[in-house]
Computed example of a mutant assay.
Amino acid sequence: MDADHADAVTGGDHGDELLARAVIEALKAGRTWAQIATQLGVPPPPSAGRPADMTEHDWQEAIITHENARATRLNDRTSPRRPGTP
Rank of each mutant, 00 (worst) to 15 (best):
D58Q: 04
P44E: 04
E25I: 10
E17N: 08
T65R: 14
G12Y: 12
I64E: 14
A8V: 11
G41Y: 09
H5W: 14
H14I: 10
P45Q: 00
A34H: 02
M1Q: 04
G84Y: 02
I36T: 01
V9W: 11
A8G: 11
A22D: 01
P80L: 12
I24G: 14
H57V: 12
P86I: 13
D2I: 09
A48F: 01
A29L: 14
A29V: 12
R31G: 02
A52E: 14
P44M: 01
H57S: 14
L40D: 04
R73Y: 07
V42N: 09
R81K: 12
L19H: 13
I24W: 07
H14P: 11
D4W: 10
A3E: 05
K28D: 12
A71M: 10
D76Q: 03
A71H: 15
E25A: 11
A20W: 00
I24Y: 06
R82K: 13
R70L: 00
E56A: 05
P45E: 02
A3M: 03
M1R: 03
A34F: 01
D58T: 05
G12V: 06
P83E: 10
D76E: 05
A48V: 06
A29E: 13
T78Y: 01
E61W: 06
P45C: 00
P80W: 11
E56C: 02
G84H: 00
